[in-house]
């Protein structure tokens, strides 16, 4: 409801794109954005931040009552560290159905565990690789037999035994050792837990961001009159720092 605003921004660039004006006319509601942030903090599992935020921003605290948050944080932490055994146990403590109902997720976790075993087995020369092979044949092979994709993943993972240790892995194999893989699996586990509890699996902000990407792509395809780029002004980029340092204005040029 705030009536027209006397310009608070840095001197207006010589030519403002009409679309920029449309953007500026939209006044997002503060409670909406705070909700978005709170939703992210809860579903991603940042309980301490969420508690502080509820206090500082005066956001309704009922979201804080999400009961699985501590367990989810612990599970994520375990997966990130590579302690898959602990993670699987904790997931099953929470709800054994989660992994039973999602064989792909279960397999992904077990494969992550196999990768860690292989990593450990091969870290020293002449060390014993038997534990890795035993684990693969007892835990993964039976599952892989029923699913072609699982089988491919298992075979690829096993080739690590041959090449490790190495600094010059082919990209496909190097992927398996990157922390991003653990991050991905951890995120999937988090989603699965939330879904199992009847919550939305993914934080709202992801959908919003995708909608932003999608709508820009579509609008450009449709030949709408848009500025060449629509940055969000996230980076504190010295490149763009003109005298006023206002990224919002820079981006319309």
């Amino acid at each position: 409801m705030s009536s027209s605003t006397v310009s608070v921004s840095a001197p207006t660039p010589t030519q403002q794109h009409p679309f920029q004006r449309k953007i500026d006319e939209i006044k997002p509601s503060k409670p909406d954005i705070d909700f978005l942030v709170m939703d992210y903090l809860i579903s991603h599992g940042y309980p301490r931040t969420a508690a502080k935020f509820a206090k500082e921003a005066g956001v309704p605290t009922h979201l804080l009552e999400e009961e699985s948050i501590e367990a989810r944080v612990e599970i994520r932490h375990a997966i990130h560290k590579g302690d898959i055994d602990t993670a699987i146990n904790k997931i099953n403590d929470l709800d054994p159905q989660i992994l039973d109902k999602d064989p792909a997720l279960h397999f992904a976790l077990l494969r992550l565990q196999l990768i860690e075993l292989i990593r450990n087995c091969t870290s020293a020369p002449n060390s014993d690789i038997t534990p890795a092979i035993n684990f693969a044949s007892s835990q993964l092979a039976p599952r892989a037999a029923t699913n072609e994709n699982f089988l491919k993943d298992l075979e690829l993972t096993m080739t690590l035994i041959i090449f490790l240790p190495s600094n010059d892995l082919q990209p496909q194999l190097a992927e398996l050792l990157k922390p991003e893989l653990r991050q991905q699996v951890a995120a999937k586990v988090n989603e699965a837990i939330l879904t199992s509890m009847g919550a939305r699996g993914e934080a709202r902000i992801y959908g919003l961001y995708r909608a932003r990407q999608w709508s820009e792509t579509r609008a450009r395809e449709a030949g709408k009159d848009l500025p060449p780029s629509l940055p969000l002004g996230l980076e504190p980029s010295p490149v763009h720092a003109n005298g006023h340092g206002d990224a919002a204005d820079v981006m319309v040029q």
Binding site: I23, D24, I26, L208, A211, S215, A219, L230, L232, A248
Partner: peptide, 18 residues
């Protein structure tokens, strides 16, 4: 000398406008 709105707000604005 800082931006008057946060990137997250601009994300919402841009999405709405687009």
């Amino acid at each position: 000398g800082k931006s008057s709105s946060a990137a997250l707000e601009r994300l919402v604005q841009q999405t709405e406008a687009l």
